[in-house]
Design a protein around this nucleic acid. Structure first.
Length: 599
RNA sequence: GGAGUCGUAGUUCAGUUUGGUUAGAACGCCUGACUGUCACUCAGGAGGUCGCGAGUUCGAGUCUCGUCGAUUCCGCCA
């Protein structure tokens, strides 16, 4: 097709171009037909420009009347100053007085109107993703995503990192997330797995002496989805040799400072906050605390304060090894507007009950000095004042008290703080609080299977002071082992995770043995890695960051689907191309597979 | 695997509480009028498998059960 190619985009013309003859190519966003005069908003990725069609030019006018939304056209004409200016768009002071109008392609009526204030459901938007992506908001998300790619590549390149591609077809290992499997045609009955992360490869690259590795790569996990979890997602994968935790933090913090400066012109601190896993759990009841609210409603253990109180519920919790803990809903710090009413408290009670608590006690310290609490006859005034002092509560504050199993109490109070923070608009999405969570446990006890499993992965180095406990047979001692393992948390979202790795086979063997992996099993699963480690594995460690989450947070968007060009639904299917889909018997035969009939 | 919410015109929704006339509105679409609009305006029109399948009932968009899809959360995701 011969057509007039654009001389400019739809976003760049302004009063400086007045008098020039230009050609624009784009999609029809809107037509306004005034009977004589006809205006067209022409859209491309860069913006909108108004075309003016004069009825005196008969041919053009006739063509223009036949145009529908989303037709692709080429328009040539002179840039002129508008008679009435539209201040809402950058090109709002000019328009094109069209002399040549070509239809490059027609469009059927679209299933939804392509407009910024989109009305269509997400389902329909996903089905016609290519139309949804015509919207500026969606294009902008991808544009920002691209800018961050470039910053990441350049940042690491300048610091001497080498970007290496690792295989997408790899060995399946049953640990961790469920693998996506790919059947082998050549080796019938055998399977590749898509990487949950390039973990083993990047460690092998350290053995190879690559020293500093980075890759922006796709990872795959066949687990149930969430707003911030897709079956395939993108990760900034990093590994370094001859480093400790501090080196990894320094390099990573530099990356985020650069991204936030360049993208948002936002200055992040020279070093990020840090908190140990145990502190995070004990103070915030969650391993990804939102540091925008780090000073409100900290969880305080008051088990000792109420130890001798004659209240059956507390006594039972304490004698079962549980705790009693409290948070102070501070009128001042939480910017409360109204009273903490019975209805609000009932609402909170309902929340914590869902999370496994029996109920939620409270003590209200009223502004008139009165203390109001359903627990007052059990606690007595002295203890209620004691609690007030410990929690640093003031008149007008309400202290919530929970009791029970430690993990349940902490988690429920943690969720309660988040709910209250949300209700009172304490979570400003223009504010960015990074925090490293350090010293994760090396193992956790899996009650269901009665065994230990690695908290991070099995190559995570224990902290030196805990190494001797690898020989322990005591469950509590083993659980107490802390690792050189860390997460990066931003505004309550886990955006990265990493560790210093084990590079000494003696330690590695002990770790395998604690999770019940025999030498033979370990060899079968990770033999290639263990063998490699026999040939001089340098001390090394790394980290991986969730790229999609970073972009969604930069954009202030909850769901990572909005920042992925072609995402999947929560049931892991793609509505546009309808995958997954059936394959032919011929394909199955070639792979030596047969589909099991569902009963 | 479990819990919640949603599914009605091309689209977004109202109607479902308390079953009962011809299922409404806005946007979009079609026709006509309109020479400075930018959410153009005005007049008219077309457009419905009430997600699907059973059941209850004289009668179901509305009640019950099942099922499918979307979404949020729990489990799960080192």
């Amino acid at each position: 097709m011969i057509f007039n190619k654009r001389t400019h985009t739809c976003g760049e013309l302004n009063t400086g171009n007045i008098g020039e003859s230009v050609t624009l190519n784009g999609w029809i966003a809107k037509r306004r037909d005034l009977g004589g005069l006809l205006f067209i908003d022409l859209r491309d990725r860069y913006g909108l420009t108004q075309l003016k069609i004069n009825p005196d030019k008969k041919d053009i006018y006739e063509t223009a009347l036949s145009l529908g939304n989303e037709f692709v056209i080429s328009a040539t004409g002179k840039v002129i100053k508008r008679e009435s200016i539209n201040k809402n768009i950058p090109t709002g002071e000019i328009e094109i007085d069209v002399d040549i109008l070509q239809i490059l392609n027609e469009s059927e009526i679209t299933p939804f109107v392509v407009e910024e204030e989109i009305k269509a459901t997400e389902e329909l938007r996903l089905q016609y993703r290519y139309l949804d992506l015509r919207r500026k908001q969606m294009t902008d998300n991808l544009v920002m995503r691209n800018e961050v790619y470039q910053i990441v590549h350049q940042y690491y390149y300048k610091q001497n990192f080498i970007e290496v591609e690792t295989p997408v077809l790899m060995k399946s290992t049953p640990e961790g997330a469920r693998d996506y499997l790919v059947p082998s045609r050549v080796h019938k009955g055998k399977f590749y797995a898509l990487p949950q992360s390039p973990q083993t490869y990047k460690q092998l690259l350290m053995v190879s002496g690559l020293d500093r590795y980075v890759q922006i790569c796709k990872c795959f996990r066949d687990e149930d989805l969430r707003a911030d979890r897709q079956p395939e997602f993108t990760q900034i994968d990093v590994e370094m040799s001859f480093v400790d935790q501090e080196d990894i933090f320094r390099i990573s913090e530099g990356l985020y400072r650069e991204i936030w400066k360049k993208i948002l012109n936002y200055d992040l601190p020279e070093t990020f906050n840090r908190i140990t896993y145990d502190e995070a759990m004990n103070t915030y009841g969650i391993d990804k605390p939102d540091f925008r609210i780090k000073d409100i409603m900290k969880i305080t253990d008051i088990t000792d304060t109420v130890r001798n109180v004659d209240f059956k519920v507390y006594q039972e919790s304490i004698s079962d090894g549980g705790i009693v803990a409290a948070v102070n809903l501070s009128r001042e710090k939480c910017l409360l507007k109204g009273e903490v009413t019975r209805k609000i408290i009932d609402n909170y009670t309902e929340l914590v009950k869902k999370l496994g608590l029996g109920g939620l006690g409270y003590v209200k310290y009223n502004t008139d000095g009165q203390i109001q609490s359903p627990l007052s006859k059990f606690l007595g005034e002295d203890i209620m004042i004691n609690i007030k002092n410990i929690l640093e509560a003031k008149e007008g504050d309400t202290v919530f008290i929970a009791s029970g199993k430690k993990s349940v109490v902490l988690s429920a109070l943690g969720q309660l703080r988040l709910k209250i923070a949300e209700e009172n608009n304490l979570l400003d999405d223009k504010k960015f609080e990074f925090v490293w969570i350090t010293d994760f446990p090396l193992f956790h006890w899996e009650e269901e299977d009665k065994c230990f499993v690695g908290e991070h992965h099995l190559f995570t180095m224990p902290k030196p002071e805990y190494l001797h406990l690898l020989d322990s047979k005591d469950k509590d001692e083993i659980e107490s082992i802390r690792a050189n393992c860390y997460d990066l948390v931003l505004n309550g979202n886990e955006i990265g995770s990493g560790s210093i790795r084990i590079n000494v086979s003696d330690i590695q063997k002990k770790v395998f043995s604690i999770v019940g992996l025999s030498d033979d099993e370990a060899n079968e699963k990770f033999g290639f890695l263990l063998k490699a480690f026999k040939f001089g594995a340098p001390p090394h460690g790394g980290v991986a960051f969730g790229f999609d989450r970073i972009i969604s947070i930069l954009k202030g968007i909850k769901s990572i689907r909005e920042v992925i060009a072609f995402p999947k639904t929560v049931s892991a299917s793609s509505l546009m191309d309808e995958c997954p889909s059936k394959v032919t018997d011929v394909q199955l035969n070639e792979l030596g597979l047969r589909i099991k009939e569902e009963k």
